[in-house]
Computed example of a mutant assay.
Amino acid sequence: MAPLTEHRLVSGPVVYGFLRLVRVSEARKEALVASLAEYSRSHELTLSGIFTERKEGADSGSGAFTGLLDVLALPDVYGALVPAVSHLGPRAIAAERGRRIEAVGSRLLLIRGSRHTRPSVTSITVAHCHSTEAVRLLESES
């Protein structure tokens, strides 16, 4: 008798994380990466990598964000995962980045929403898959 579907590893929706890490400690970075991984695991998403932005004055077209948009445009990529809207940058840049994520046909998933942001930026769509793969941290200096 074949095992039940629930006992088989099923590949599911792929997401990529995005972190804005300006002047944060290594412990804080590790905690944020762990929170993305745990959210993905608990919502049965496949976290394939995390793009990080480290420069304080980054605009809406930084190297890390451009890399995120590139992977979001790939087939079978479900969305972008961030701890909070603030990780997309200051309010004006975050709003623009939210629009650009939606423009490539992707979803923006927030671990923690904010009552001060637009509904389209804070909407959370949850999908399902089974994966506990290691997450690649994609560093960027822009």
Rank of each mutant, 00 (worst) to 15 (best):
P83L: 06
G61R: 13
S86W: 00
D76F: 10
V85E: 05
R97T: 03
R23C: 15
I93V: 15
L47E: 03
L68I: 13
A64C: 13
S48L: 04
D70G: 09
G63Q: 12
F18C: 09
G63F: 06
H43M: 15
V82M: 15
V22Q: 12
R91S: 13
F51N: 09
L88H: 01
A80N: 07
F65S: 04
R91D: 11
G67I: 15
Y78Q: 11
S60Y: 10
Y16N: 01
D76K: 14
L74V: 01
A80E: 04
P83H: 03
P83M: 05
F51C: 03
S11A: 09
L69H: 12
V14D: 02
L68Y: 08
H87S: 06
D76I: 08
G67Q: 14
K55L: 09
S42M: 15
S86A: 12
S11E: 08
R23W: 13
E26C: 09
V71M: 12
L74H: 09
G12T: 01
V22H: 05
A73N: 05
L68S: 14
L36V: 07
G79L: 00
E44K: 09
A34W: 03
G79N: 02
V22R: 08
R23H: 13
H87N: 11
D70Y: 10
F65L: 03
G79T: 00
D76S: 14
V14P: 03
R20Q: 04
G17R: 13
H87Q: 08
G12Q: 03
V85S: 01
S35L: 14
L45E: 05
G57D: 12
R20Y: 07
E44A: 07
